[in-house]
Amino acid sequence: ASVAVIAAGTQGNIFATSALRSMRFLQILRMVRMDRRGGTWKLLGSVVYAHSKELITAWYIGFLVLIFASFLVYLAEKDANSDFSSYADSLWWGTITLTTIGYGDKTPHTWLGRVLAAGFALLGISFFALPAGILGSGFALKVQEQHRQKHFEKRRMPAANLIQAAWRLYSTDMSRAYLTATWYYYDSILPSFRELALLFEHVQRARNGGLRPLEVRRAPVPDGAPSRYPPVATCHRPGSTSFCPGESSRMGIKDRIRMGSSQRRTGPSKQHLAPPTMPTSPSSEQVGEATSPTKVQKSWSFNDRTRFRASLRLKPRTSAEDAPSEEVAEEKSYQCELTVDDIMPAVKTVIRSIRILKFLVAKRKFKETLRPYDVKDVIEQYSAGHLDMLGRIKSLQTRVDQIVGRGPGDRKAREKGDKGPSDAEVVDEISMMGRVVKVEKQVQSIEHKLDLLLGFYSRCLRSGTSASLGAVQVPLFDPDITSDYHSPVDHEDISVSAQTLSISRSVSTNMD
């Protein structure tokens, strides 16, 4: 405001104040949320940038038409019409005319000016109207692209899951042992070998009828009888010197917790746990005396209480009078009846079946994303299906024409109403129809010849004498029936064969 007042002088105070007050009108834009329509302006900018070359070309040609039209109309009207006294007036008329506004304040009066105005109007309006069409088509394409992008975003994750499931299904095939990355992934998420051994031990116990592997080994086996189970490696608790092959000598807290839970599941009659010990102070733990958990001091820290809870689970003690015997301790020893080589084939089979199920689920979810969402998608899918159906029908028609023997030239002739090819031409065609016709002709010829021969033979049998045999009239074959199959017997006289037959029969009768 200060700059405006200084620039306008003393009389500019009122002007500056009114100008600043008129800017209050811009507050109405906040009512229509114009300040939060950044996406709309961004869309407009992207459309203009995408079609910038077309817009520049249309505007450039339109500007050239405007300059030439205004100049030529000015030359034609400057002497006869006072409205075109300057080139600026003519340029104003050209702008209003070519933009199809047409105020009518300035019009050419001479015939030359009117002809020039009409010609440049028809030429220039087309170029001035091009930017509107370019922007409209650009907006339509952009909206369609955003629509497809939205659908693509919805299909991206199911497609990625389907590709991942397909690759993992491919890589978990037993015949592709060189693909090891997927197996490394499952090695990292699978439970430890100790848990798998416990699982298979329970399965084997159920197969043995509820007997433990130790009891199965204690059962008497006759001499020479084959053992029911192959000899396997035996594993004891981590306190002993022997372990399962492939295990580490260090046992983690999870393994100890699972070991304690498995020992508690063996039965309360074979294992008696004394009350857990509780320390009397955060600094020292008295293991010899058993106290109640309700006497825990409230001033303990979080670490002390955590250690106390761990001691409740991981440090059970047995009383002296209830101490288990050596046999019970041997039964409680952890027996590992299986090795990694025995378990891994079954584990890989389970993983393979899981990968198949996940692949089928991913495939079903991806197919669900291909379903249409709204009416536009339904129409688009219907149009695509219609085009596909037309293509299939056209391909089927082409194959039928190839089989029947109607080529493209014959199809055009039928469409024009011309006469089709004759039967002889159809026979000569190298097509399925021509071959079928040729075979039918040959079969008819053979059938006719057989009928003639059978009739001749029956007449010979009825006559009974050589004289009557020679008097029999043998009809000749019709050459038209034989089609294109020409037998060497067709052109010979059958009477010669009949005479030869009669001579042979007379000779045979004389010999008798």
Rank of each mutant, 00 (worst) to 15 (best):
E440A: 01
D480N: 06
S301N: 14
V443L: 03
A320P: 11
Y382S: 03
S262A: 05
I430F: 07
G239D: 04
Q499K: 05
I351F: 02
S497T: 11
Y184N: 08
N208D: 03
S261C: 10
A323S: 12
G267D: 14
T266M: 07
S299G: 08
V489G: 13
S192A: 09
P268H: 08
G455V: 04
H386D: 01
L469P: 12
L469R: 11
K348M: 05
F193S: 01
H202N: 07
E285V: 01
I189S: 07
D512G: 14
N208S: 07
V328I: 07
R313T: 12
L199M: 15
E425V: 09
V439E: 01
L476M: 12
A384E: 10
T180I: 13
G385A: 15
E330Q: 10
A467G: 08
V404G: 04
E201Q: 06
H486Y: 14
H202Q: 06
A233P: 04
T291N: 06
V437D: 02
Y184C: 08
P268R: 15
A166S: 09
R406W: 09
E331A: 04
R364G: 07
P488L: 14
E330A: 11
V437L: 01
G420E: 06
V427M: 09
A471D: 15
G252S: 07
T482P: 12
H448Y: 08
G420V: 14
A498T: 12
V507L: 09
G417R: 09
H272Q: 01
A471G: 09
S281T: 15
P191A: 12
V328L: 08
S175R: 00
E201A: 11
S175T: 07
T280P: 13
D410E: 02
G434V: 12
F308L: 14
E380Q: 03
S240I: 11
I356V: 06
P220A: 02
G470R: 12
A166G: 06
R414P: 10
A233T: 01
S262T: 12
E289G: 03
L338I: 02
D223N: 05
E492V: 10
Y178C: 11
C235F: 03
T266S: 13
N303I: 06
I403T: 12
R309W: 08
D493E: 13
R228P: 14
A498E: 09
L454F: 02
A233D: 01
L190P: 11
S292G: 11
R305L: 13
E425Q: 05
D418V: 11
G210V: 15
D223E: 12
Y334N: 03
L469Q: 03
K441M: 09
A413P: 01
G464R: 11
R212Q: 03
Y229S: 02
L314I: 15
Q335E: 01
V437G: 02
E285G: 07
I253M: 02
S311P: 14
G417C: 04
D493G: 14
S422P: 07
S506L: 09
A177D: 08
D478N: 15
P191T: 09
I379N: 13
I430L: 02
K412M: 08
F243I: 02
N510I: 10
R505H: 01
K419T: 11
S281Y: 13
R307H: 13
V328A: 06
Y457H: 01
R305C: 15
W183L: 03
K295M: 04
A233V: 11
P276Q: 15
K348T: 09
G260R: 09
P231R: 07
L357F: 00
E425K: 01
V404E: 07
A424P: 06
C460S: 08
R207L: 04
E285A: 08
K441T: 04
S502T: 14
G224R: 07
K315E: 14
H448L: 01
L501R: 15
R168H: 06
D255G: 11
D341G: 15
S299R: 06
I503N: 10
A424T: 05
